[in-house]
Design a protein around this nucleic acid. Sequence first.
DNA 1: GATGAATGAGTATTCATTCAT
DNA 2: TATGAATGAATACTCATTCAT
Lengths: 213, 213, 213, 213
Amino acid sequence: MGIQERKEREKERRRQQIIVAAKKVFSDKGFNRATMDDIANEAELSPGTLYLYFKNKEELYASLSIRILQYLNIRVEQISGAKELQPDQKLDAMIEAMFDVYEFDPLVIINMFHLQSSETLKNLSPQVMDEIKDLSRKSIGGISKIFAEGAKKGIFIKRHPVALSDTFWAFFSGIILWSTSKKIINKDKDYLKKTLGIGFEIFRQGIKIKSRS
Amino acid sequence: MGIQERKEREKERRRQQIIVAAKKVFSDKGFNRATMDDIANEAELSPGTLYLYFKNKEELYASLSIRILQYLNIRVEQISGAKELQPDQKLDAMIEAMFDVYEFDPLVIINMFHLQSSETLKNLSPQVMDEIKDLSRKSIGGISKIFAEGAKKGIFIKRHPVALSDTFWAFFSGIILWSTSKKIINKDKDYLKKTLGIGFEIFRQGIKIKSRS
Amino acid sequence: MGIQERKEREKERRRQQIIVAAKKVFSDKGFNRATMDDIANEAELSPGTLYLYFKNKEELYASLSIRILQYLNIRVEQISGAKELQPDQKLDAMIEAMFDVYEFDPLVIINMFHLQSSETLKNLSPQVMDEIKDLSRKSIGGISKIFAEGAKKGIFIKRHPVALSDTFWAFFSGIILWSTSKKIINKDKDYLKKTLGIGFEIFRQGIKIKSRS
Amino acid sequence: MGIQERKEREKERRRQQIIVAAKKVFSDKGFNRATMDDIANEAELSPGTLYLYFKNKEELYASLSIRILQYLNIRVEQISGAKELQPDQKLDAMIEAMFDVYEFDPLVIINMFHLQSSETLKNLSPQVMDEIKDLSRKSIGGISKIFAEGAKKGIFIKRHPVALSDTFWAFFSGIILWSTSKKIINKDKDYLKKTLGIGFEIFRQGIKIKSRS
DNA sequence: GATGAATGAGTATTCATTCAT
DNA sequence: TATGAATGAATACTCATTCAT
């Protein structure tokens, strides 16, 4: 039993070791130019070993998304379930969470997009795909609830909550991607934050129902 | 003279023939999985011929962006220079223009992102790169002017116009990319439009200064 | 008749125009890296036109050799037939002729070697091949006669004259090729001449029968 | 340790296996028409494997030269350092060595010339280039010493030893190349030997200072 | 489990040659 | 005759994946 367990833990450590290496390499080179050899070197393992833990390159890449989605999910659940917060406060908290997600892994967005490509999906094992779908659904659902609650209380505009949730995510993605592609990130990290800030401010203002004074 | 001209026109037709084929193939498979042979087949030409009109794969891809940027630019200039329109009306017109740009070529955004990759830029000929840079600058500039004018007239929030312009573009990109990656486009074209609609409404509301009544 | 003749002359001029261009381009880039387009550009003609005058790239290249072989042949015949000269004086004259051949076209040797490749020969039209063979045979024959005469008169060592002739040519080739490959030519033209000088001196001394004094 | 060593030996065997195949294919087809696939087939390996042992086609080709240069070098050093031999005996030994070099690999000369091309040099890794340069320098140096010694002792003509060394090499190259290009080698191996023999005899006689009797 | 050597399918690009005008 | 646009075969090199050890 103890041995079984230790083995299990050892195995998990290996997975993490690979994931960390993969994150670095994919970050540096992007999916296409990153090679399995690069990742193996970074992880100080042999290429063959990677295939003991991940079915293929796509699935290794996908697993990076799972990690970040898990993190996001925890945050969303906390915020969504916080009874002491009003919808607009929850929205602010969500925005803050998004910042953190981005800091945790700036590749998030690119990962997420890559993941959706039908070619990619073909190469994933069902269980990995299911986990991703499940996590995505939960996250979107959690955010939706905030918008629904806000609409119900007359604080936010009345729109289909899932559509709003998508829009929120799309907005966030857009700014990050745009900034990234303009190579602003490395040179002027603040510019991205500022842009994200402006963006979220606009979003916040845009969905608020103005209280008449 | 007539001959010269006819040849010129013939040549331009070929370019378009290739561009149309490239657009289709890149749309279907993305940059990396699209092969020059695919494009040649689609264009009913030989692979060698592609290289008579475009220096390499990257430059062929880039030329798709140039085409759409040119279209966008015309629209931006018209709107930006329309003296009879108020800033908020111009913003509405811009949003409409963005819709049209998207309809003209749903790949826009992906093209634009691909274009920014440093690896891509290396393979472009200077003149192509200059044209792209010039067109981008003009478009962003035109949109900025609208925000600046709106801010001056007290209709829009006061923020750095270029940052707003970036945000506007990022927002637009985000929604398209997100929808695209969710493969919503083909299945439910209206959902994308709806999402874009909601998004822009939020944006519009978000930057408006509310007149107190 | 006059028209016929003028056409003929016009045609010959074109051939020369192409040959001159080809010589330059092959000199600069070598056979493999020189393209038919390069040559067409240099000749200010279209690529298609080259094929009206030469069957293919190989044959165009071969015709450069014919030109130089023709020149060499004239010199050999003059020297070989000069009754007022002794064999050793003829050898000196031959050496001088070789210098001139080299100055006329430093590519000679490389041309000659390329020509011998069986792959090349396959692509030549029979008449071109015959001309080359004929010219080669004549040149070698002419030189051989000098050695034979020298041997007969007890001035040169007694060896098979054709073998000596080959050796003479090989020696000459070797020095030029070696110098060329060491890129000495362009930088230090004199070094090549000096080396050729030393080489020929050795050769001259090597085949002389020393008169005892 | 044993394992490490066996692997090392295995690896070296593979290199040799490839080199042998490459030698054959390059011999048959020349550098340009030989394809990496040809070589892979000949070596009964996959094309990809070749690249595990050699950076590229050029470097594979170059390594053939290194092999023969190493062999030559050993011979040169032995001869040059043999105190019991007189300069003229050393020259004879050198000539014999040249025969052996040629027998070891008749491509020597062509390799050496190919190697000098600037295009080739660009694709070689520095360490390979350095090794080649070093080996060449040593060989030429060793031969030069013999000529210098001979001149000092009044046996050979007084000429710049490096120039003589170049001439010696050029002479050797010329005969081989000429014979090879005339495809004499395969058909009449003896003719080449005879020609080489005559050539070297001429060379020997040409640089000797005649003792007056 | 771990290795890493070997695999071999996949692809952008070039360029001699052709042929409709 | 001359053109030059179009052709398409040919090829070096990469890299995800496998499998014998």
